[in-house]
Structures are given as C-alpha cells and as structure tokens.
Design a protein around this nucleic acid. Sequence first.
DNA 1: TATGAATGAGTATTCATTCAT
DNA 2: GATGAATGAATACTCATTCAT
Lengths: 173, 173, 173, 173
Amino acid sequence: MTNKKENILKSALELFANEGFNATSTNKIAQHAAVSEGLIFRHFKNKNGLLTAILESGEEKASRLFATILNQTDSKEVIRKTIELPFCIHKSEYDYWRLQFKLKWEKEYNNSKKIMPLVEKLTWAFSMLKYEKPNLEAQHLIYIFESISIELLKGNLDNQNIYKEFLKYKYTV
Amino acid sequence: MTNKKENILKSALELFANEGFNATSTNKIAQHAAVSEGLIFRHFKNKNGLLTAILESGEEKASRLFATILNQTDSKEVIRKTIELPFCIHKSEYDYWRLQFKLKWEKEYNNSKKIMPLVEKLTWAFSMLKYEKPNLEAQHLIYIFESISIELLKGNLDNQNIYKEFLKYKYTV
Amino acid sequence: MTNKKENILKSALELFANEGFNATSTNKIAQHAAVSEGLIFRHFKNKNGLLTAILESGEEKASRLFATILNQTDSKEVIRKTIELPFCIHKSEYDYWRLQFKLKWEKEYNNSKKIMPLVEKLTWAFSMLKYEKPNLEAQHLIYIFESISIELLKGNLDNQNIYKEFLKYKYTV
Amino acid sequence: MTNKKENILKSALELFANEGFNATSTNKIAQHAAVSEGLIFRHFKNKNGLLTAILESGEEKASRLFATILNQTDSKEVIRKTIELPFCIHKSEYDYWRLQFKLKWEKEYNNSKKIMPLVEKLTWAFSMLKYEKPNLEAQHLIYIFESISIELLKGNLDNQNIYKEFLKYKYTV
DNA sequence: TATGAATGAGTATTCATTCAT
DNA sequence: GATGAATGAATACTCATTCAT
C-alpha cells in the first residue's frame, strides 16, 4: 500500500470517528491527508468505499482482539479477560472503535452479530462455573462490557480502574 | 403552538432520530411535515435551533421520568424502578431517546451530568442496603441501565423481559 | 400619515442610504421600524414602492433647496448660493441625499435632468458677469458642486470650510 | 490563469459594474461566463473573494495610469495630464472604473487614500507655478477630475471634449 | 390599520464525483 | 499513481410578498 493511500485511510478514520461520517467532506479528508481530492476516488471509488475500506482494515484487528478470549480454555480466565478487554485497547485504536460504536446507530452498519462468538464463549464459561442462568449471565456481562467500552471511548476514564477491580472482585476472577 | 410548527418538530424528531442530524436535510423535513422549507427557519431560526427546540421540549419528559425514581423513599424500590425504567418508555418516545443517545457521541451534546441525580439516589439506596461499595454498585447499575436502553432503542427486544426478571432477581427487588 | 407609516419611511431611508437598497431586506426595515413586515406591503405595495415613496417625499425638500437659488435676481448671489448650498444641508437630510447619489449609479434612477434649471440659472449668471463661456463655466461649477456634495455626504468634511472660502474668493462672490 | 477563471473575472466585472455587487447573483455570473456556479467558489472561495480578485487585478492598471502623471517633471505638464487623464481611459476599462466609483459609497471599499500621491504632485505643481494656495488648488482640480470621471463613466460625454479644452485654457496648459 | 403565519423562488456555498492530463 | 480543473445536484438559509384574521 502506497504512502498516500495509507494517509487517506488514517485521516478519514480520524475525521469520521471524531466528526462523523456525514459531517466529514472528502475535501477535508484530502486536505488532512495532504493529497488531492481526486486520489480518494481513484483508490476507493467513492466516499462509502473509503468507509468500507477503513472498516475492513480494522476487521482483522478486531478479530485478533476477540481471539485472545475465544482461545482461552480456563472459564475464569474467559471472564477475567472479557472484563479487562476494553482497558487493553491502545489509545491509537480508539478512533477505530469510536467509529464502530457510532456506526452501530445506523441501521446499515449495525453488525451486532460480530459479538456472538464472545457471548457463546461466556455462556460456556458461566455454565462451567455452575451459574444458574449462564446465557443471561453472558448477556449481562456483555452489556457491562459495552457500557465500559463506550465510557472509555468517550474519554470518561476517571475511576475506571477501580471499577475494573470491582468487577473482577464481583466475579471472583 | 400552531399546527404546522408542531408538524415540523415531529417530523424533524423522527428524521433526526432515524437518519441522523447531519443526514437530514431541511428540505426533507419540510416535505415530511408538508410545509414550506422557509417556515422551518421562520420558526426556529436555523437547523440547530430546530434541534435545540426538540431537545428542550423533551427535557420535561425526561425529568418526569427520572422524578418517579428520585421521589422514592424505599431503597429497594429505587433499584427496582431503575431496572424497570427503560422498559416503561412508551414506543412513541423512542425517537426522542434514540436521538439523545446518538447525540451523546457529539461533544457538544454530551450532557452526561443529567444522570448524576440518579447515580446519587442509587448510591444512597445501595448504602441503605449495606452493599460494600455503594457508589461502585450505583455506577455498575447505571452501566447496565444504559446498555438495556440502547438495546431497546435499537429494537433488539427479543428476550429483554426475561433479562429484566433476571436482573430483579439478582438484586432481589 | 400614521405614526407607523412614517416610521417605515424613516427606517427605510436610513437603511437604504447606509447599506444600499438591495442589501436592505424588508425584514430588517420592519424590525428597525418596529412594525410587522406585512405593514410595509400594505402601505407601499412592494419594496420598490417604498423606495419611490421615499424619493417622492424628498422631492419637495429638494425643490425648496434649489428654489432659493433659482429665485435669486443678483448674479453674484446665484453663484455664492450655489457654492454654499452643499454646506447648508442639514445633517438630518444627509441620508436622503446619500441615497440620491447612490441611486444615480443605477440607470433607472439617474435623473440628472433635475439639475438643469440650476445649470441654466448659472449660465445666466455667468453671462451677466461677462464670463467668456458662461455655459461651460456653469457646467464647471456644477461639477465642483457635485464633488463637494459627495465629499460632504461621505463624511470627509475636514477642511471643507476653508475650501468654501477659497471658492468664493475664486469667484469673487 | 485558465480560460474559465478569466471568463468568470470578466463576466463578474461587467455585471458588478453595471448591476451592482449585491444585485448580481453568482448564478448570473456563472451563466454569463458559461461555467458551473461551483467553479466560482473553487477559484475565489466566495463572492467577496471574487470581488477582491477583480479589484486586485485592476490595481496594477490604476497604478500605471497614475504613474504617467507622477513621473512628470514639468509642472504644467502635470496639470495638463491630470485634466486629460479621464479622457484617456479606454472604453474597455470603463467597467472597472465604474465599479470602483460605485464601491466608494461602501465604507469597506472607500480607499480615498489612493489618490493622495496625485494630490501631492498637483500641490507641488501649483506651488511651482506660484499659485497662491497650491494645496487648495490641488484639491480643487481633483474635485473637477472626479466629476469628469463620473460623468464620462455614466456615459454623459456629449460635449466633454469642449469642456476639456475649456479646462486646459483655464489653467493655460 | 396591523399582525404574523406561510410560501416559493432565489441565494451563496458545499459536496461527492468525473475526467483530461 | 496523482493532480487539479470542472460539474450538477444538493444544502442551509433569505427574501419579497400574500393572506387570513
């Protein structure tokens, strides 16, 4: 991938994540990436193509993140890793995830099915640990997981570490 | 308030909530409300003014919703009401709340302080019930509360009732 | 004439003179005059009608101004009065005259014929005073007259009094 | 400069000069120049930028015009050249100058200081010629100069040549 | 007489996209 | 691969004007 193409992807990600897809003009992206506006269309066909490219290039990242949990064989470890996951995301990837969460509000991009493997793994973990209603417990933890993520991505991290410990204590992991 | 003005407010709310603020043109709103585009600006000065008007007219609704919890004197009842709150919202008000949640992603509209009274009330409730870390428990429940709300507003209500009962059971309320 | 109608005329004159006819919206006039926009159209049919009304209501003023010169029987006095005329205009009438001068640049309103009687009177005066080319002298003085007027209306009155005396000295009047 | 950019400048100058800045819509300019409306904004940022570009591109023209007088070393020649200047302007530049004179009525564009060097040169010339009040004489001639210019630009050139000779005779130049 | 709601055409400007080079 | 000129449709917003009350 050429330097300029990558610049476009980076700039677009940053702008889409912070200002929103619709509020970001291709002109702004071009300026931010220091390339001509035409180049965006040469590389990505259109603005939506650019968004798709960003999302796809992040897909791998996302899979790798989940994989660390899905590969776990110890049930307690599955829960612990799930709780810790949002805190492990590197700041440099916040833009990508902020964009993902924003897009969830648009029907076309609401790919909530991606989290299903994690739900199933958690269900398995909770059933191993003899929780009464493992699937509801899994859903419960996912909800908490999502709220933490949102809070972190919005920059409200005040006492999140204390809360993380609180959670681990609650689940004795 | 004249009929047409109200039409504009209704149409705009619906469109902003479903398509997003930026993605909704004033022209589209006018057509949807069956009024001239100019009328929007005569009544609300500009597109942002229209958004503000929508938000303000919903403010009251929101306060009333929270009030039912904040007035509670029984600690268990506070928790039970909090869990049930998202399920009590009438479908006709979904648009308003969906808009609110979408806007939380824009810095200018992130009024996360509005929920503070509820956090405090929950802290009080948990401390009354001798929970070890009442403020963390409050934050915890708020997180769950927000995730449920998001899920409901997005239309994923499949087994939410079962989950609600699960939660009430968990908190023995 | 009702109070409100007069308010409209005054406000419109002020705004037309200072911001220009095209740059002044009827809305602005209405606000400035503290009346409803509709009233403007009730009284003057349309924006152009308002301009016409202003111009007509000033016509009389203008005629009276010129009359003081045209009635003169002493030739020297004619010249002296012509030189002094621009300086005699009351500040409160500057708006009217500024509007007049601005409109001269629009073909439709270029009524340069209004000054003809003055040209003729000056020609007469100069011929009485045995000037070689009285009609050219008249035209000459009119040019000076107009430049002074423009300068005064634009607010460049620095040393205009000295210049006035200089002129009177030049014409020995 | 591309062909189309120049077309825009030419069309805008013509329309601004004849119909006025406010009365000329960018749409009209685009049609007149046979380009898309968007191109105006790509080249000049906004309507005001277009005006500025026109004015700047004429600046040079103006300087060159004045220079022929300012470089003069013979005092009589200075006066003669000043009198003749308005008559030397080529018809093709009338639009530019008409625009300049119109804009003088708007505060933002009233650059009356540009004529100062000419005033000073004339003062010098009149003092060389032993006129009693050289600075007032300079101002006087400038006033005449401006009135002639206005008359010519408005198309009232009937007997202007006779008047020009009259002036030269008056100043014996 | 006076208001204020309402409109349709118009305004400057932006946008995503195309294309010749 | 990369640019920059060019476009047409859209955008938020303004305007003069009408009309029912």
